[in-house]
Simulated assay, not measured.
Amino acid sequence: MIVQGPCAEAPSLSRELLGSLKQLALAAGRTVEICTCMGLREFVARVRTARAPRTEFMLLAPGTLAHQSQLHPEAGLNDALDALHMPYIEVQDGDASMEAGGASHHGPLATVVINGDVPSSYRIALGIALKQLSA
């Protein structure tokens, strides 16, 4: 599952990129579900409602919500991340992290940051996730 927040610039998942990600997953015998969230509450709710076995791995791309999660820890993102029962990878197009002061005990398996190249960030993150799932 890919959960993405709003991006400051253009939408991060174009049709072409989405098709490419779905093909990568399909080649590995997996499927990809995309959830686009426009606000922090919706993003936190998506993270909280992810359940195994339907969701085996998450790619979390908070976009502009990373900064909001640091300003509003009461929104519960760190608690939601701590409660996850599956691994996740954070995908960033910048230097903002979702963790407020490193308070999360259940950190990401990896954080992929490629400034200005969101498609590569997603492809690398999905490649890591698929490799972990096949291990």
Rank of each mutant, 00 (worst) to 15 (best):
M1Y: 14
M1K: 15
I2D: 00
I2R: 00
V3Y: 03
Q4S: 10
G5Y: 07
P6D: 05
A8M: 10
A8T: 09
P11Y: 10
S12L: 11
L13A: 07
L13M: 09
L13K: 05
S14I: 05
R15Y: 04
R15Q: 05
G19K: 04
S20N: 01
K22Q: 03
L24Q: 10
L26S: 12
A27D: 09
A27E: 13
G29H: 12
G29I: 12
T31P: 08
T31Q: 15
V32W: 02
I34R: 10
C35E: 08
C35P: 01
T36W: 12
T36P: 03
C37R: 06
M38R: 15
L40S: 03
R41T: 07
V44K: 00
R46C: 11
R46E: 14
V47P: 01
R48C: 13
T49S: 14
R51T: 13
R51Y: 15
A52Y: 15
A52N: 14
P53W: 15
R54C: 15
R54E: 15
R54D: 15
T55C: 15
F57M: 13
F57T: 02
M58K: 01
M58T: 01
L59Q: 03
L60Q: 02
A61E: 04
G63Y: 03
T64C: 10
T64Q: 09
T64E: 10
L65K: 02
L65V: 01
A66G: 02
A66D: 01
H67G: 05
H67F: 13
Q68P: 00
S69K: 00
S69Q: 00
L71E: 14
H72C: 05
P73D: 07
P73N: 08
E74A: 12
A75Q: 12
G76V: 04
D79N: 10
D82N: 12
A83W: 05
L84M: 07
H85Y: 11
H85V: 10
P87T: 06
Y88S: 06
I89N: 01
V91S: 04
V91K: 07
D93T: 08
D93G: 06
G94F: 04
D95R: 11
D95Y: 11
S97M: 11
A100V: 11
A100R: 04
A100I: 06
G101R: 06
G101I: 08
G102V: 13
G102S: 14
A103F: 06
A103Y: 09
H105I: 13
H106M: 10
H106I: 06
H106A: 14
P108A: 15
P108W: 07
L109Q: 12
L109S: 11
T111L: 11
V113L: 08
N115M: 09
G116F: 10
D117N: 13
S120L: 13
S121L: 13
S121G: 14
Y122C: 04
Y122S: 02
R123S: 04
R123Q: 12
A125R: 02
G127C: 06
I128R: 06
I128F: 12
L130S: 06
L130H: 08
K131Y: 11
A135Q: 07
